[in-house]
């Protein structure tokens, strides 16, 4: 079946081929898994979300109209299943942008900081991503981590491209603080709330505070 396109496999499935859908999933399983586990940060939840999503896709395949690529359609179902689960477990606390930090003149501004040098950057990044609002997290995982084009992510998430760009941009700004790439007067002085997650991650991983 390897020479059959994704669309062909889905059509074969809709026509009653019992192996076609499993083959389709087999082709994309690692990418779908990566999105699920990176969005949910929990192996069991990711497995449950993926199973629920793919069974839903299995049963709704006849309704696929080809407006998007099959992989986009599959990702959309998986991402929605993951976001549903994130919302269910109540989003974790988020970190606001450092809008109220001040400089010597009492005016708010951010300051650049040395980049994180860490022996386990992945752990720090994973923890920082977990602190983002789920919509920013999903957009960043799809665009910056998984490398999907903004236009495709817009279709996956069912929003405008500008919305994807905004979610990514604001998510990057928060990550910049969390990862120590952008510090403020406030958290430089006492390593306070804004950089707390980043510090915790670095402490666990044996890194040094920026």
């Amino acid at each position: 079946m390897s020479e059959i396109s994704d669309e062909g496999l889905l059509a074969a499935h809709a026509a009653g081929d019992r192996d076609a859908f499993a083959e389709l999933v087999r082709r994309h399983r690692d990418r779908l898994w990566a999105v699920a586990v990176r969005t949910l940060h929990d192996r069991e939840e990711a497995a449950d979300a993926l199973q629920d999503a793919l069974l839903k896709a299995y049963r709704s395949a006849a309704g696929f109209r080809g407006e998007a690529a099959v992989t986009t359609w599959l990702h959309r179902i998986v991402v929605n299943a993951c976001l549903d689960r994130v919302r269910r477990r109540q989003a974790r606390p988020t970190v606001p942008l450092p809008a109220n930090t001040v400089d010597r003149e009492g005016r708010p501004r951010p300051e650049p900081a040395s980049p994180v040098i860490d022996h386990d950057t992945h752990l720090v990044v994973r923890q920082a991503l977990a602190q983002l609002p789920e919509e920013q997290r999903a957009a960043l995982i799809l665009v910056d981590v998984q490398g999907y084009p903004v236009a495709e992510v817009a279709m996956i998430l069912g929003v405008a491209e500008g919305t994807v760009k905004s979610r990514c941009s604001r998510g990057r700004a928060r990550l910049a603080v969390l990862l120590g790439h952008l510090r403020t007067e406030g958290n430089r002085a006492d390593n306070g709330d804004v950089s707390g997650v980043s510090r915790a991650g670095m402490d666990q991983a044996g890194g040094r505070p920026a």
């Binding site: 650049p112 992945h122 700004a173 910049a176």
Partner: peptide, 25 residues
């Protein structure tokens, strides 16, 4: 300027994070 520089560093971190394969168990 600060944000622009920070964005580059964040994107670099995220790309490195994404470069590690996440294979389905």
């Amino acid at each position: 300027a600060d944000l622009t520089a920070a964005f580059g560093a964040v994107s670099s971190d995220l790309r490195a994070f994404g470069a590690t394969p996440e294979r389905m168990p």
